[in-house]
Structure formats: structure tokens, C-alpha cells
């Protein structure tokens, strides 16, 4: 839509006004890391963050979400979408959210996700600090970030604010935005292009090459065994993943033992239980009983299975899995290298 400009000083006033009137989330410091959290005053917002522990999807697709409330035999859906703004979402997370939007919408639209999402305004921001394990410069390189409402790029003395939707345009009235100059818009574009080359790690192959070779490696048990030897099946890679969206559903009663909730929880295909079925009489069948089968499933799901639907890999290169894995075997950059060289 439009390109606006705001000085650093006015940006602080803008934030102050915004957080007083709206629910605003953004990256904040937690010890030596960052997390998306509620912002109550402008100085909390750390647009210079590198990456957050969990991706911003948690705000509209929380780790624990009630689906239904029941009380005896009456029941109702738990839908309570709130208008909220997420500030400072990096491009890799914007791409991930766009994927989730598609996946929750396709075939059977999931209102528990979509209603929250629709009420959420997503304002991206340029990457000022580069996370050590990130490789977004080369992950799904052909996929453009889209689906966000606005985007902030920090110049020396202020921000260029690109509005892409009405939701973002409505925010402009909160402060002294002026029309951005052509040079400022160009400068912002330059910054966002240049940063792509600055990732410490890089995939040396195209998404299509990776998908083909990875799929062909399916039966290479020796490879998967080697890659997954130290895997804890702990689910850290899935739980921190920007594009993972699998969930479990459980019922529980409230203390009155009558009412209660049907609730969904983030789930993880790396855990032993994920593909287990009960056959009766205590017998179970686990469709992915082996560590290497679960490891392979995650890799396939990130690099192969969803590519046709998504137009690119279900990996955006945020590097969260690589950071979270204490055995240091989850890094897609290394996994891809091993597969391609196998």
C-alpha cells in the first residue's frame, strides 16, 4: 500500500500510544535470549533481537488451547479471538506464519486457529542481529515473505514503515508518520536484500535439489541411523519449529468433576508416542518405533512432503531447532549436507 517514515523519537511515542490502547506483543529480552511477550512500555521492545526461543505463532496458536468447554451434556466451542498486534516479526517467521495460515485453512478450515489469526495484525521488522545458527538467507530462497500487514525497516534516524493492509494503515494515525522519501524506501529495500547474504550458515543446494535427493534417500537406513544416533526423541526441534503445527487433543474435568475442557496441545513427531496405536489387550503398534524413522519423518516433513502444497520447503531457516538440540544433530544445514553427500 504505502511507505511511511517515522523518526526514532516519534517511534517511541507511537509505541507508547499503541501499547496503551492495544494488546501489543513483541520480542523482549529474557536473560541472554529473546521471547515474544506482551509489551507494556516501549523500551521493552527489542527490535535488535536475533531470534526468539519460540516463534510468534504461539500468540495465535498457543501450546495449550481449549477447543471445547463441556458441562454435563451441554458444550460449546472455545473461541475468543482478541485483537492484537505482533511487532517485530522477522521475515523467516512471516514466511512460517504464511505456511500455517495456508495449512490451517486448506480443505477443512480450522476456526480455532483462523479466528485468532484474523484478529492479529502482524508487523514485521528487518533483521538487525543475525542468529548464530540461522540460514534463512538460503532456506526456501525463492519464497517471498507475505501475509503480514506491515513491515518496519530501521534506517539510521528512523523507520520506514511499509503498510500492506488496512490493518497496518490504521496504525499510522497513532503517531507522526510522514510519507517516506524515495531514497528512504530504496535504502530500506537495500538493507533487506543485503541482510540475506549475511547468514553464517548456508544451504548449498536449491530447495528442489534437496527435496529430490532427500526423498530418494528414504531407504538409506545407514544414513538415518547415523544422523539420529544421538537423538533423544526429546521434541525440542519440533517444539521450537516455526512451521510445526501437529497437536494432541486431551479431555479433562474441572475440580467440580462435571465440567471441563477438550484441549489441544502442541505435539511432536519426534517423541516415541506420536505414531503409536493401541490394538487392545495391552498390545500396541508404533508406526515409527525407531529413532531413525522419527528423525527421517521430521526431515521429510520439513524438506519434502509439504513442498508441493507450499511452493517451497516447510523450513524457513530460523535455526531454532539447531539451537535447541542439546545433542546438536538437528541442524538442517548439516542434515542437508549429509544427505546431499551421501
Amino acid at each position: 500500500m504505502n511507505h511511511h517514515y517515522i523518526t526514532l523519537k516519534d517511534f517511541n511515542l507511537f509505541l507508547t500510544k499503541l501499547v496503551n490502547q492495544k494488546i501489543v506483543y513483541g520480542p523482549v529480552a529474557r536473560k541472554n535470549k529473546f521471547v515474544f511477550d506482551l509489551i507494556s512500555s516501549p523500551e521493552q521492545l527489542r527490535l535488535d533481537y536475533d531470534v526468539t526461543i519460540l516463534p510468534p505463532k504461539k500468540i495465535f496458536f498457543p501450546p495449550k488451547q481449549h477447543l471445547l468447554h463441556f458441562d454435563g451434556e451441554s458444550y460449546k466451542d472455545c473461541l475468543d479471538p482478541k485483537e492484537q498486534i505482533i511487532m517485530g516479526v522477522h521475515n523467516y517467521d512471516i514466511k512460517a506464519i504464511d505456511q500455517l495460515d495456508f495449512l490451517f485453512k486448506e480443505k477443512n478450515p480450522d476456526d480455532h486457529y483462523l479466528l485468532n489469526r484474523r484478529k492479529t495484525t502482524i508487523i514485521g521488522s528487518n533483521i538487525q542481529t543475525i542468529a548464530a545458527r540461522s540460514f534463512w538467507g538460503s532456506a526456501g530462497a525463492g519464497v517471498e515473505p507475505k501475509g503480514h500487514d506491515g513491515f518496519l525497516t530501521k534506517l539510521k534516524d528512523g523507520f520506514v514503515f511499509e503498510t500492506r493492509t488496512k490493518k497496518a494503515e490504521n496504525l499510522v494515525k497513532f503517531a507522526k508518520f510522514i510519507k517516506a522519501k524515495k531514497t528512504q524506501v530504496e535504502q530500506a529495500a537495500q538493507i533487506n536484500t543485503a541482510v540475506k547474504k549475511k547468514c553464517p550458515a548456508k544451504l548449498a543446494y536449491s530447495s528442489a535439489e534437496i527435496a529430490i535427493k532427500t526423498r530418494l534417500a528414504f531407504k538409506n537406513n545407514e544414513l538415518w541411523e547415523r544422523l539420529s544416533k544421538d537423538c533423544f526423541s526429546c521434541g525440542s526441534c519440533n517444539t521450537t519449529c516455526a512451521t510445526c503445527y501437529c497437536f494432541d487433543v486431551q479431555d479433562s474435568w474441572n475440580l467440580d468433576q462435571k465440567s471441563g475442557f477438550r484441549t489441544r496441545y502442541w505435539d511432536s513427531c519426534m517423541t516415541v508416542e506420536f505414531a503409536k496405536t493401541s490394538l487392545g489387550g495391552g498390545a500396541v503398534h508404533n508406526f515409527r518405533a525407531l529413532r531413525r524413522e522419527r528423525f527421517r519423518h521430521r526431515v521429510m516433513r520439513k524438506l519434502v512432503y509439504l513442498n508441493d502444497k507450499l511452493g517451497g520447503p516447510a523450513c524457513v531457516g530460523c535455526g531454532r531447532c539447531a539451537t535447541a538440540c542439546t545433542a546438536d544433530i538437528a541442524d538442517p544445514v548439516n542434515i542437508v549436507k549429509e544427505i546431499m553427500e551421501a
Binding site: 486448506e106 477443512n108 480450522d110 505435539d267 496405536t277 512432503y305
Partner: peptide
């Protein structure tokens, strides 16, 4: 086919076989 299933509507991921969802 039979698989572990939670949502039955192609979202939860439990019944996935490669790129197919058993439920949908």
C-alpha cells in the same frame, strides 16, 4: 488403513504417511 488419529480433519499430523493424511 488405520493410524493414530486425533483431529480427523487433516491437521494434527498423527496419521500422516509420507505426504498423505489417512484421515482426509
Amino acid at each position: 488403513l488405520e493410524r493414530r488419529m486425533k483431529c480427523g480433519v487433516g491437521k494434527c499430523g498423527h496419521c500422516q504417511i509420507n505426504n498423505k493424511y489417512v484421515c482426509t
